[in-house]
Design a protein around this nucleic acid. Sequence first.
RNA 1: GCCCGGGUGGUGGAAUGGCAGACACGGCCGCCUUAAAAGCGGCUGCCUGACAAGGCGUGCGGGUUCGAGACCCGCCCCGGGCACCA
Length: 930
Amino acid sequence: MSETETPPFRYTAALAGEIELRWQAYWAENGTFHAPNPVGELADPTHPRAGAPKLHVQDMFPYPSGAGLHVGHPLGYIGTDSYTRYKRMAGFNVLHPMGFDAFGLPAEQYAVQTGTHPATTTEANVERYRQQLRRLGLAYDERRSFSTTDPEYYRWTQWIFLQVFNSWFDPEQGKARPISELIASYEAGERGTEWAELTPVERRKLIDAHRLAYMSEAPVNWCPGLGTVLANEEVTPDGRSERGNFPVFQRSLKQWMMRITAYGDRLIDDLDALDWPEPVKLMQRNWIGRSRGAHVDFPIDGGHIRVFTTRPDTLFGATYMVLAPEHELVESVVPAAWPEGTKDAWTGGHATPAEAVAAYRAAAAAKTEEERTADGKVKTGVFIGAFAENPVNGVRIPVFIADYVLAGYGTGAIMAVPGQDERDWAFAEVFQLPIIRTVEAPDGFQGAYTGEGPAINSDWLDGKGVAEAKAAMIAWLEENGKGTGATTYRLRDWLFSRQRYWGEPFPIVYDETGLPVALPESMLPVELPDVDDFSPRTFDPDDADTEPETPLSRKKDWVQVELDLGDGLKTYTRETNTMPQWAGSCWYELRYLDPHNDKVLVDPENEAYWMGPRTPGDPGGVDLYVGGVEHAVLHLLYARFWHKVLYDLGHVSSFEPFKRLFNQGYIQAYAYQDDRGFYVPAEEVVEREGGYFYGDQRVTRSYGKMGKSLKNIVTPDEMCDQYGADTFRVYEMAMGPLDVSRPWETRAVVGSQRFLQRAWRLVIEEETGAVRVTDEPLDPKTRKVLHRVIAGVREDMDELRFNTAIAKLIELTNALTPLPVVSREAVVPLVLMMAPFAPHLAEELWGKLGNEGTLAYADFPVADPAQLVADAITYPVQVNGKVRGRVEVAPDTPEAEVREAALAAVAEALVGREPKKVIVVAGRLVSVVV
RNA sequence: GCCCGGGUGGUGGAAUGGCAGACACGGCCGCCUUAAAAGCGGCUGCCUGACAAGGCGUGCGGGUUCGAGACCCGCCCCGGGCACCA
């Protein structure tokens, strides 16, 4: 192999590398991608896009892991980079920032293992990510980059926490208001006389109970293996931690909560205003789980049982009741002996109701979530010996406990209507309970009927449809004081505290009463102190009977603090929990807008410009937000919640953070295992004889994610070394639509390199480096191709269809390649259109074509409509659906003439048969029916 | 079980109800080369056929239409989400 044989000016990986480094340096030195703000430090009235229409495009920022990037990670980043480079050239003032979600478990766990401070690890990882991203030529405004771990950033995370802490949700107005207004309202006596009689401490407790961030002793998800509690969203359906897959137990613990449930309605309703993938909206709706129905009170000795039902219309069919095993009313209503009318099947074989209840409760408590749901539809339960009264007809109905009723949903009690509910039907069969249909089922229908139909066996509801009967029953319940219309949610309040080290400290201290006191803004940020031991106390993953202990609590000299919070110098105790990883990503889209502002979170003018609503009903928000679908519920729900609080309190003008969401697909890879099951390096496996071989060994192939242990990682750095960043970018964008997952195939990358080499060769003579381009006009036929490509590329770019845009650019390049002369008329627009995908190469060629500086703000080509009209149209002519001939006619040929010509063209195929029908589709084809 | 996506060549993928398979990978053939690589050119859905040509083709079965990969009905398979939420 001798270098003399490769033409010296060929676009090789080495040349690409040289060009890329040079342009990356140019962009950085010249601040090419700085986006001007309307006001403040980043304002720049002289900027070419100052005052232009804005476009705010954002990627879900990464957690900078120690492993660095693989080729799958930057797919979305390259997509948004290509899109924003295009939009910038098309005249928009583009904001495309990137930051790092740097708090979190891996850095902490690494710290525990090695003793390295998480800040050190995190900083190194962030630096590595920055270099990898820079190498890909991503056009970020680097002035706006930050890590969530920067004290100057988390100062504002803490500030938002204080906003949430210092507000309450006013159900009348349906929005958050400052807590001071609630206090004023109590003081003014607008909320009863209670206030005047309370002690100061009682008043504080009353107010604290209204805050949007509050402490509560409540059942939480305790994960001994991680040594921390987790939010519901972080627990998998089989009762394990999403991170680490450890068992999770229900424990009652005092923890910080955020009142996200107050926003349930708005979080559902405002989805309608968003341009999001329908599946993501659906997942959020399901997670919030709003059900409308009624609360109904069933009298029972010494009180009543309140149930929630979505089917108040079926009340006449309620033949028994079920309480969750843990329901607090159970003790007080269990009688000493089984009452008359107790069936044998109801007692579980126990001598007394108290024994039966105790036994069932013990059995239910011993089951894990996994076991309970694995039992599926087999219903268990036990009669508690008490009867309640159906409030609509006074019928005496037995009361059971059963684990198919969940303590945490609704009121933890149900009225059972086996006729119209499958679960109740199954239970009624096991326990020989009566079934009364109250909705007429279709003839021959078996089992519980949940469909539409007229009410039957329901006295004054008979004949009414389901919706009408529901409304009538709710009205009746309310008139007679037996119940009310009600809405419940599956969504629980957000458990916000974690017993970890590597997170934002709470800006909260406790005084001598043990009640929380907010630190004033002037004391922010509360910096994370250095500690010797970063680890929370972790336990045997299966030992539920353990207590969390936070790393910060061991730092005694930090926990005890002397402060003057208005009452003179006093000793306070700091909150030692930290915030969950989601906190930093809940609002970062706002900080990009005004990253260095130390007066406010974001200047209102800058927020209104980049994210404010443009038309009535417009939610505002980021114009395009690209990321993986795995954040459909967690991050996106929390971020929407915080944004709405900030909106209510007047800090932002947009009521949603992300107007348009796009879920990019994943790049996956094949992995290969030998017959012992060991993974072998994927890059060394070859395909032959219809199988896969590693050396002489036959190996089996599997498909999935890239991972170190699967030995199938390909990194962007390798791709840059072997092909150059531009080739890598073009390949990732050309391999398929952005939202589709697909397998990585290194050997296919060469196709993109060939494309760039051909384009390069159009401009540059490979042997001499001379510019080949001439001022010769383009021939008319190729000119039409050019303009058709321009029109198509613009359309594709606007729709994020980068793969087809690149295909059109290849077609144009291939059309120009065989031409005897290279015309500037075609090459200039080609280079400009390639710039979003292959920016370094395009910049270089742009310079060779005699231009100064960067093309980042050059006008993206516009097609000449006159060139989009075809010279002639070739009509395929179908006979009975098969193409049997073609005719070429001028574009404006009248239909009758086209028909004539077409019939003549297929005369042979018609062999004298008379056409029954001739359809001429203008500009498309002719269809003849015989 | 319920709810979403999705099934097109050897592969990744194109196709406002209008010539299925753009573009690319791979494969085959050729040019260049002492040779190889790179590059360039041609062919490449399947079947029959020397060619010309013909037949069959978008998971399966029906339907609507002059015309269906696309629309409707009923299935099958793959991926994802939810799963006793009253």
